[in-house]
Amino acid sequence: MDSLFLLVPISLFLGLLGLGGFLWALRTRQYDDLDGAASRILFDDDHPRKETPK
């Protein structure tokens, strides 16, 4: 049963990591355009073909 003292915190930590990731994604507005995100992964060129003056 001692293993629980190690395993339970690990599982909780991993769960919280996932929750943290979800909150981050929500805050950076990644859930706002689900349809667009679904097709964006199919675009071949992520960056426009020109030198962007930054």
Partner: peptide
């Protein structure tokens, strides 16, 4: 040439 960014939201 002068456009810095263009981002469209499908939803």
């Amino acid at each position: 040439p002068d456009v810095l960014s263009a981002r469209a939201s499908l939803t």
